[in-house]
C-alpha cells in the first residue's frame, strides 16, 4: 500500500510523524471541542481555533519562573512532544502500515505514551508553584491508577491475537469479529482509560481549574505550553487509533481510520460532558477497585475460553 519513493527520513517528517500528526492532532482537538460544545448546546470554536491557539502560544514570550531547574524546564515539553511523535511510528496511523514495527512494539508504544504524562508530572514538580506541585502529585497519582487497567485492557486483544506486535493484532482484528463485541469489558476499560490518560473530564482533577488553576502546567507559558498541548493532542489521535485498531476490527484503510476514530471521539466527547469531575481519591478508587478488577476478569475469561 505504501510505495512512495521519497527518502524514508523525509517521508517520516511528513507521514506518519511530523506534519500529518500535527495537523491531525489539531483537527481532532477541534472536533473534540466542537462536539463537547454541541453537546452543551453551545456553538463551539471554528476549525481554525486550535491552530490559532498554537500559533499564538508559539509567538508568546516564554517565562521561566524563579526557582526552577532551567534546562529541565525547557527540555521537558520537547521530550514530551518527541515521545508522543515517536509513539506514532508503531501505530497504524490513518490505516497505513506503521513506519516501524517489531515484536513487542505494543509495550514500547504504551510507555512512550506515558512519557508525556511523566514529563508533565516532572514539569509540575520542577516549579515551586503550589498549584503546580499539587497538580504534579495528582498527575502522577492518576498515572499510577489508570496505567495498569489500561495496559490490561489492551492486553486482551493482544492475547487473542497471540502477539505483542501492533500490526499482528491489527491484522488479526481485521480477520475476526470486532473485539468490542467479543471483549466488551476490555473495550470499556480501554476507552475510559484513554480518557484518564488524556486527563479529559471527568478525570481532569490533575488540572482542575477551579481548584489548582492549571495543575502541573500552571507555570508554563508560550512555547513550552504549546508543546505540551500539542503533545496531548497527538496522544489523543494515537490513543484513538490504538483503541480503534484493537477493538473496532482493525484499520485497513484511511476511510476506516476516519470513521472509526471519529466514532470513538463522539463517544468520548459525550462521556466528557456527562459527568461531574471526580476527586483524585475517587479516580484512584474507581480505577483500582473497578477498572483493574474488570480488566482482570476480562483476561480471566479470555484465558478460560482459549
Amino acid at each position: 500500500m505504501n510505495n512512495l519513493t521519497v527518502h524514508p527520513l523525509i517521508g517520516l517528517l511528513l507521514f506518519p510523524g511530523g506534519l500529518f500528526l500535527l495537523a491531525s492532532g489539531l483537527l481532532y482537538e477541534w472536533i473534540d471541542r466542537k462536539l463537547v460544545a454541541r453537546f452543551q448546546n453551545r456553538v463551539g470554536p471554528r476549525f481554525i481555533q486550535p491552530l490559532a491557539d498554537l500559533v499564538k502560544l508559539l509567538a508568546k514570550e516564554e517565562i521561566s519562573p524563579e526557582g526552577v531547574n532551567k534546562p529541565l524546564f525547557f527540555i521537558l515539553p520537547v521530550v514530551a512532544l518527541a515521545a508522543a511523535l515517536t509513539a506514532a511510528l508503531y501505530v497504524p496511523m490513518a490505516g497505513f502500515v506503521p513506519a516501524g514495527s517489531f515484536r513487542g512494539d505494543l509495550i514500547i508504544t504504551l510507555y512512550l505514551l506515558s512519557v508525556l504524562t511523566l514529563c508533565l508530572g516532572l514539569a509540575g514538580a520542577n516549579t515551586i508553584s503550589r498549584f503546580a506541585i499539587i497538580g504534579a502529585t495528582r498527575t502522577l497519582t492518576q498515572l499510577f491508577s489508570y496505567e495498569a487497567p489500561f495496559l490490561l485492557a489492551l492486553l486482551g486483544p493482544a492475547i487473542a491475537a497471540a502477539s505483542w506486535q501492533i500490526t499482528d493484532v491489527d491484522f488479526y482484528a481485521q480477520q475476526h469479529l470486532w473485539m468490542a463485541v467479543t471483549q466488551p469489558i476490555g473495550f470499556l476499560v480501554a476507552l475510559v482509560g484513554l480518557m484518564g490518560k488524556l486527563e479529559l473530564p471527568p478525570f481532569d482533577s490533575p488540572e482542575a481549574e477551579t481548584e489548582i488553576v492549571a495543575g502541573a502546567m500552571t507555570e508554563y507559558s508560550g512555547r513550552g505550553y504549546a508543546l505540551f498541548r500539542l503533545g496531548k493532542n497527538i496522544e489523543l489521535v494515537i490513543g484513538l487509533t490504538l483503541v480503534a485498531t484493537f477493538y473496532l476490527g482493525g484499520l485497513a484503510n484511511p476511510v476506516q481510520f476516519l470513521i472509526k476514530t471519529l466514532g470513538l471521539l463522539v463517544v468520548l466527547a459525550a462521556l466528557q460532558s456527562l459527568f461531574a469531575r471526580l476527586r483524585i481519591d475517587q479516580t484512584v478508587g474507581l480505577w483500582w477497585r473497578v477498572g483493574a478488577l474488570l480488566a482482570l476478569a476480562q483476561l480471566l475469561v479470555l484465558f478460560l475460553l482459549r
Partner: peptide, 16 residues
C-alpha cells in the same frame, strides 16, 4: 456550583 464541581454540562444548561 456545578462548574466548581467540574460538571460543565449542567453549568451550561442551567445558565442557558
Amino acid at each position: 456550583a456545578a462548574h466548581e464541581g467540574g460538571f460543565e454540562t449542567l453549568f451550561m444548561y442551567s445558565w442557558r
